[in-house]
Design a protein around this nucleic acid. Structure first.
Length: 660
DNA sequence: GAGCACTGC
């Protein structure tokens, strides 16, 4: 596979002469095996291909299939978990085949469809293919589907396993053209995939990874942050310059603190040591600061990249010789019993440890320092728990039912989520009146649910949009739904914290964070999306532009399902009522002692200190989400009238209030 | 008075 180029855009693919490209393609390990590969793909309905990094499988296999005529009149889809990967790989393959991007080779990701009627090889996100299956669950356009990076086990890929398997069967049953499937994965989980696909044959493709030396600690480490600091300086003193280090840490705060400590200590190092260049790397770091980690290290210096899991799969940094693996990761887990998301630091799996190790040997032999003992490594779980078993399934089940799979409890999951988790999601969909249950216990999508599934949003937000039709404030609800769909638009740099908070005050609303976000959207529009305005008001311009894209998509979808896009600029209550109808099950009530109690689970909850209502005590609120850290916090609030809640679901509140 | 990892439609 090609090294990802995470931050390049569609026009700056490196220009290589066609001779150079030809040579490069022929030197790929997969090239010599191509004839045999095609023969094997011809015979099998489903094939599992295991290939290490840099084997060329992602770029070359679709070409081999196309050239050999195996794909016939159908298209070849190749899915990726990430947008940038789909885009950059398509660019590369178009260049290699010397065709214009968007003609024979194209890509399709949200907001960008770079394909045409001529497209034969289509790189796309897994979520995009899943969305296509809503319209056509037999995936009739395609003769080959390649599910790449299958070991990452995203919810989308996991669901696609079942959808494609069923499409293969259905097509056979109805005498339609065959659908061939290729599952491409790194080394783990091979037998698991093969068994799920009726003992599909497994092919191995050699990679080009250099040898990696693994070092364990002799003793267990109680403080992995400290251990990582010690290791950085040990390497720094013993190894020549320009041998860069990548350290895996868990989060922003940890990274900033380690960064500061390294800077402090390096002041007192002997002057003959190479200069240290410290590069923090995490997703919420502003773009231009992230770029520092990708710059080539000047001769005689050493780069130390302090990264979250973003460097495990999403981005690749060149020139890394040493990896320091703390063995920890911050991850989010959904607990169906409480309906709570908990974000916490956990131990990684062995598969993740190998993935991290692989980041050291991309250009030359590397070394990994595992900050745990070999015995500890043996106790790590072999594979990461698939996302589908860690997440709230409400949206996923709505999508499944929109595809036409009503018996969600018996869907052919490769690894099924718990029954509790499925039942909790169904209960929520029933409360939103998007799913109905017959007397015999069969679930069906209601007409409302069918419309909700059209929107790429969490069902509570889709519900608010559909309710806004009755209140004639569709435009306003779309704006807020888009604002709630992106990473925070608020930018609070540590150094100018007070100033940022002061600027923000002009947007705050007594009705809560939802209305504050609407105020920001309106001010942004009034200032025509001016970048300087964003900067002066501590608003993240990139995320605001994302809001505009999403809002346009949502508006187009409204028109598609015949929703009249009405507007009611003045009546903020109408807007709040719509969100009450979507979020009524996220309601909390003020208690006499000043705390809040969630109406659904009767838990004591608190207003998050970042909320603009932090110092207020409204009687009733709905919240966007509940997160457990040191306490149970409600984030993103909207003040509501209890009558609105009651009207949203009278039976539900009758039951809940009886219990109080 | 807290402190959010990472994707995707």
């Amino acid at each position: 596979m090609l090294p990802e180029k995470p931050y390049s855009h569609k026009n700056d693919a490196t220009k290589l002469s066609s001779n150079d490209l030809e040579e490069e393609v022929k030197s790929l390990p997969i090239y010599s095996a191509r004839k045999k590969l095609v023969e094997q793909l011809r015979d099998a309905e489903t094939t599992i291909i295991i290939g290490e990094t840099a084997s060329g499988k992602t770029t070359q296999i679709p070409r081999y299939i196309f050239r050999s005529g195996l794909s016939g009149n159908g298209m070849i889809a190749c899915t990726q978990p990430r947008r940038v990967a789909a885009i950059t790989i398509a660019q590369r393959v178009a260049q290699e085949m010397d065709v214009e991007l968007g003609k024979q080779v194209g890509y399709c990701v949200r907001f960008e469809d770079f394909t045409s009627t001529q497209t034969k090889i289509k790189y796309m996100t897994d979520g995009m293919l899943l969305r296509e299956s809503i319209g056509d669950k037999l995936l009739s356009k395609y003769s080959f589907i390649i599910l790449d990076e299958a070991h990452e086990r995203t919810v989308h890929t996991d669901i696609l396993f079942g959808i494609v398997k069923s499409a293969q069967k259905q097509r056979k049953l109805f005498n339609k053209p065959k659908l061939k499937l290729i599952v491409m994965s790194a080394t783990m989980d091979v037998d698991h995939f093969s068994r799920y696909f009726r003992n599909a044959p497994v092919l191995y493709v050699e990679g080009r990874l250099h040898p990696i030396k693994i070092k364990y600690t002799a003793k267990e480490q109680s403080d992995y942050v400290r251990a990582s600091l010690v290791t950085v300086f040990q390497i720094h003193q013993d190894e020549p310059a320009n041998n860069d280090i990548l350290v895996f840490l868990t989060g922003q705060e940890e990274i900033e603190s380690v960064s500061q400590t390294i800077k402090d200590i390096s002041l007192s190092l002997p002057p003959n040591l190479p200069k240290l260049i410290i590069c923090p790397l995490y997703a919420s770091l502003p773009h231009h600061q992230q770029l520092k980690a990708f710059r080539q290290t000047p001769l005689g210096s050493r780069k130390v990249v302090l990264s979250t899991n973003i460097a495990e799969t999403s981005v690749t940094i060149k020139g890394i010789k040493f990896v320091i693996d703390t063995g920890k990761v911050k991850s989010k887990q959904f607990y169906p019993a409480t309906g709570l998301d908990v974000l916490s630091v956990q131990r990684i799996s062995q598969a993740q440890a190998w993935q991290r190790a692989g980041r050291a040997g991309r250009e030359r032999p590397g070394v990994v320092y595992r900050l745990y003992t070999e015995a500890e490594f043996e106790t790590l779980t072999a594979n990461t728990v698939p996302e589908i078993q860690r997440t709230n399934l409400t949206n996923t089940l709505l999508q499944l039912m929109a595809i036409g799979i009503n018996d969600v409890l018996n869907f052919d999951f490769i690894d099924a989520p718990s029954k509790d988790s499925i039942l909790v999601a169904i209960k929520e969909l029933k409360l939103l009146r998007s799913v109905s249950e017959s007397e015999t216990g069969k679930y069906t999508l209601t007409p409302l649910g069918r419309k909700m599934a059209v929107f790429p949003l969490e069902p509570k937000l889709s519900k608010a949009i559909l309710c806004s039709v009755d209140y004639q404030c569709v435009e306003e609800v779309l704006s807020l739904a888009a604002m709630l769909s992106v990473d925070s638009v608020l930018f609070t740099p540590q150094a100018k914290r007070e100033e940022a908070l002061a600027e923000r005050r002009k947007f705050t609303a007594s009705e809560g964070d939802f209305i504050m976000l609407l105020n920001i959207y309106r001010a942004f529009k009034q200032n025509k999306g001016n970048k300087v305005w964003c900067y002066e008001n501590f608003i993240n311009a990139r995320n605001m532009n994302n809001v505009l894209d999403i809002r346009k998509q949502l508006r187009d979808l409204c028109l598609k399902v015949n929703i009249a896009v009405t507007s009611n600029h003045r009546d903020i209550n109408a807007l709040r009522k719509c969100f009450s109808l979507g979020f009524f099950m996220n309601a909390a009530e003020l208690q006499p002692d000043g705390s809040y109690r969630s109406i659904d689970a009767h838990e004591t909850v608190h207003i998050h200190p970042t909320s603009c209502l932090f110092k207020c005590k409204p009687a009733y609120v709905v919240y966007r989400e509940l997160v457990r850290t040191s306490k149970c916090y409600m984030r993103d609030l909207c003040v509501v009238d209890p009558d609105w809640l009651y009207d949203a679901a009278p039976e539900y509140f009758q039951k809940k209030l009886k219990k109080l």
